[in-house]
Simulated assay, not measured.
Amino acid sequence: MDYDGILQTFPKEIKFFIAVFVVVLSIGFFTGLSFVRQTEATTPDGVEENYLGNEADEYANVMKFKKGDREMLTIVHTHILSMSLIFFLLGGLVWLTKFPKEWKLFLTIEPFISVLLTFGGIYLMWKGITWFKYVIVFSGILMTLTFTFSAMLVVKQCLYPRKVQA
């Protein structure tokens, strides 16, 4: 079955539906990132402080405490489940675009690896492997870049399709 570029052949109403879905999904995704920015967890040290606390820092502007067992399991559990669904849905749409297969493979597999590295890394850092804070930041950035590119690719091909040869 040839699915490369099939998105462009969908009726315009279906393409509009898909584009609106991806835009709303993106708003949700980037709202989550703004929350990360609010907690100052965009740097390796900020990530560590957000999950392990800063009680020892007598000059801290905002006192943060180490997250508890239940809170950590809830964070990891909900994020891995929800992000897996987000990237599954977006990845399915990416496979329907007209784009090189190797790039589609990267754009659809990498986010799952980044989800595991980011949220599994948060858990491992919380358990004491603090150097994972660098992996968390790197994988989080890569996950955001692949989401952004994938979403833009799908929306662009829904709203501005190339002429498909009959």
Rank of each mutant, 00 (worst) to 15 (best):
D45V: 08
F88Y: 14
F65A: 13
L107G: 06
S34N: 13
Q8V: 04
S84W: 11
V22A: 07
Y134S: 15
E71N: 08
T39C: 12
D2S: 08
K101H: 14
F35Q: 13
L33P: 02
S82E: 13
T31W: 12
F29G: 07
P100E: 11
V76R: 03
V154S: 02
G53T: 00
F88A: 09
N61L: 12
F29W: 01
A41N: 09
G91P: 09
L73R: 04
F147K: 03
T97Y: 03
F112E: 01
L73K: 10
L153G: 05
L52M: 15
S150L: 05
A41C: 12
P100C: 07
V164A: 11
I129Q: 12
L105C: 09
F147Y: 10
F87Q: 06
I75Y: 13
I18W: 07
K66G: 04
I27Y: 14
T97H: 09
A56T: 14
T43P: 15
Y3I: 15
L153M: 13
V115W: 04
F87V: 07
I75D: 11
L25N: 09
P44G: 08
K156A: 13
I122L: 13
S139W: 01
I136P: 01
V164F: 07
M72G: 09
D69W: 11
N50R: 12
F30G: 06
N61S: 10
V24E: 11
L142C: 11
L117D: 09
A60C: 07
V115G: 06
R162P: 05
P111D: 02
M1F: 12
Y59P: 04
V24D: 04
K104Q: 13
G53S: 02
T9P: 09
D45I: 05
K15W: 01
L89N: 06
C158G: 06
M83P: 00
F65H: 14
I122C: 04
I27H: 03
P11V: 05
L89Q: 06
K98T: 12
T130P: 05
F88V: 04
G68W: 05
V20K: 01
M63G: 11
V155L: 02
E110C: 13
Q165A: 13
I6W: 01
V94H: 07
K156Q: 14
F29R: 00
G5F: 00
G92E: 03
L159Q: 01
Y160F: 15
G32R: 06
H79C: 01
L116P: 07
